[in-house]
Design a protein around this nucleic acid. Structure first.
Length: 259
DNA sequence: ATGGTAGCGGTGCTA
């Protein structure tokens, strides 16, 4: 079973690229972020025509997450628990009932810039909430995957120019520590488990200043696996070529394979 | 320190 995550930076603006990639890569489950539309405006018909079911947690203009699946999506959960007034659409989870059963979450973790400040406080609080969610989920002892744009550069090797990011919310020590703490409760980074020594692997290149042409990228789109999911992990790949397509998202898909 | 680009929506915010 192939499970991918992709921040599409508006599902409507980049629909052609999304559909082309689905036909090419044939993922079974896709976690989308930054769909930037409300539920009623989500192009479900186009995805259903390719054989996907959809679960959508959208909002106007900003954020918005969704799940696409070739198999049935059950027990859809919208919003990360513990919000208390948090109205950003950044989290959706559902159980994929296919040849194997796996619960999948599509998440769009807050960017957090500028740091320090209220946006950074929100990011760190959101990471705490995600850790609490994951701790609870681990008690089920079932396969699950937390996939999305984490807006975290975990290590210096995950940036082409790490020195450019030292004061950025994506790379601050507190951010990296929170991500490390999240993994340490018992989650496996899917891409890193398959490619432990790889360098120069990125999932995002800014539109500005020719970042793509210079390969000035960062790896911020991740898939974290429960032990039961990690036991089934057989592959992981970054679909870098998609960034070179016409009118691309600034992120590319990252996909894992579970047996 | 600034500006570089993109999407949304029709101005400035978010990234």
């Amino acid at each position: 079973m192939r499970i991918a995550t992709w921040n599409v930076n508006s599902v409507k603006a980049h629909l052609d690229a999304v559909l082309a990639w689905l036909k090419e890569a044939k993922p079974d489950v896709v976690c989308l972020q930054e769909i930037k539309c409300e539920d009623h405006a989500f192009p479900a018909f186009e995805f259903e025509a390719l054989g996907y079911s959809c679960a959508v947690h959208g909002q106007k203009t900003y954020n918005g997450v969704a799940l696409l699946s070739r198999y049935a999506l059950e027990d859809v959960e919208k919003g990360l628990p513990g919000g208390d007034g948090d109205d950003h659409a950044r989290f959706i989870a559902a159980t994929v009932v296919g040849p194997a059963v796996v619960r999948v979450a599509s998440l769009y973790l807050p960017n957090g810039n500028p740091a320090p400040g209220p946006k950074y406080d929100y990011k760190l609080a959101w990471m705490k909430r995600l850790e609490a969610y994951a701790r609870k989920a681990l008690l089920q002892e079932e396969a699950f995957v937390l996939a999305g744009d984490f807006n975290v550069i975990p290590e210096p090797r995950d940036a082409r120019f790490p020195e450019n990011w030292t004061r950025d919310a994506l790379f601050l020590p507190q951010t990296r520590a929170a991500f490390s703490a999240l993994k340490s409760i018992g989650l496996t980074d899917g891409y890193r488990a398959v490619h432990p020594l790889k360098t120069g692997a990125y999932s995002f290149w800014d539109y500005q200043a020719g970042a793509w042409q210079k390969d000035n990228g960062i790896l911020i789109d991740h898939l974290l696996l429960s032990p039961q999911a990690a036991d089934r992990l057989t592959g992981a790949d970054i679909h870098k070529h998609v960034r070179g397509w016409e009118k691309p998202s600034d992120h590319v898909p990252v996909m894992i394979t579970l047996k």
